[in-house]
Design a protein around this nucleic acid. Structure first.
Lengths: 145, 145
DNA sequence: TATTACGTTGACGTTAACGTCAACTTGGTG
DNA sequence: CACCAAGTTGACGTTAACGTCAACGTAATA
């Protein structure tokens, strides 16, 4: 993946303002600055104003995806750092690989959890629908799924 | 599912102390009491001591699974309440079904996120391994300047 | 009987992840 | 020029999810 957003044919616009990104991802500018404080972003400056590259935008997307999955900001930073790892330090490379494997195992567990929870919800829904059918005999508009 | 743990042939022991559950799930007793404060559990009492049924234990497991998936305690409580819904109030049943569908849709999104993140990690790992292989062919530069 | 183990209820402290607000710059626009 | 919109940096406030005591009760054990 390598966070560098190969130049596609579209999008002439190569940079973003902070409020553009905030609007696009439906977060506040405060949040974006906060992520910078925490070392997850470090955009260039035009004078004192921040300007964001497509790569910065991709990082933001990774952060928000991580949040949806319950990762802490620090964990997301770890993942982002993986893509920018120093390819000349083999010690660091090894620990990175270990981190990746650990994280992947955790995600696979999470994947299993989600699948069973979806199953549980399906069952619960069916039970409720059944209960409703018994309760009022008139056909409900609620079709299954 | 219906949180009632059908009596299986095993487990003569029908109840648990707070510290037993804490040990089993590797959390503190404070945490368990906190969940009760928040209305996610309400165990019986023996005098002033709490005693937990297998159903309570199952609820705890649901809470912790929810946590792994990034659910808030309130969301987990909603889910738990679904299983104990009042089957005679069809209005409530309908809103429950809606909640379930919403939650399931969210989980399916999350499932997709996880799958792509796992893919990303796979790629990252391969890149790093490749980088290591190249690196190791040159004489290892143990001394840094 | 004294100690130990396990439990209880407050009450206050802590951390992550922002929200809110005040005071300031800076680049256009009528 | 005067003003506004968008940006900036502190600094303090807030909420969720517990941690960390302190002070106490109770049952079994030495």
């Amino acid at each position: 993946m390598a966070i560098s957003d190969h130049k596609s044919t579209e999008s002439k616009k190569r940079t973003y303002s902070i409020s553009e990104l905030a609007a696009e991802f439906d977060i506040t500018t405060r949040t974006i600055r906060f992520y910078e404080e925490k070392g997850l972003l470090n955009p260039n400056r035009n004078g004192q104003n921040r300007i964001y590259t497509p790569a910065d935008r991709t990082k933001l997307r990774l952060i928000l995806r991580g949040k949806r999955l319950g990762l802490s900001l620090e964990e997301s930073r770890d993942i982002i750092d993986m893509y920018a790892a120093d390819r000349d330090n083999s010690d660091q490379l090894q620990t990175l690989i270990n981190k990746i494997r650990e994280k992947r195992a955790q995600l696979q567990h999470q994947l299993f959890d989600i699948e069973t929870m979806i199953q549980d919800l399906n069952e619960a829904e069916n039970n409720l629908i059944e209960a409703m059918a018994k309760h009022d005999q008139k056909p409900t508009l609620t079709e299954k799924r």
